[in-house]
């Protein structure tokens, strides 16, 4: 389905995750962050978002454990940065697929 985000028409799935990463840009991330109740994105948010995108590019299965060991952030800060389902929200903002794992 199509959705207008930050003035651009974007292909998303029914949960609002981008289907085509080439359509992603920072203004889209900022708009999704507001919709998800995260508010304005700080440098700390961007560090996590960039790391997630790199992992996705390298086809690494994303888990909170890996993020905690990444050196980019720790588990406590990650939950504080993206309250209410951090991995789900951070991946949506990063324009990548929702992680399918249970851990």
């Amino acid at each position: 389905m199509e959705k207008v985000i930050a003035g651009k028409t974007i292909n998303v799935n029914e949960e609002g995750y981008l289907l085509d990463f080439d359509q992603w840009d920072k203004s889209i991330a900022e708009q999704i962050a507001i919709e998800e109740g995260i508010g304005e994105l700080t440098d700390r948010h961007w560090a996590v978002v960039t790391w997630l995108q790199e992992q996705e590019k390298n086809k690494v299965a994303l888990t909170i454990r890996k993020l905690g060991k990444s050196g980019v952030t720790d588990i406590k800060e990650f939950y504080a940065l993206f309250p209410g389902g951090p991995l789900k929200k951070a991946t949506k903002i990063a324009g990548i697929k929702k992680p399918v794992g249970c851990i």
């Binding site: 299965a61 909170i64 905690g68 588990i75």
Partner: peptide, 18 residues
């Protein structure tokens, strides 16, 4: 192999997540 943390690490993760 499934990236399941050992018990001590897993419990701490739950604590750190709130």
């Amino acid at each position: 192999r499934l990236d399941l943390p050992p018990v001590d690490e897993f419990m701490e993760m739950i604590h750190l997540s709130g």
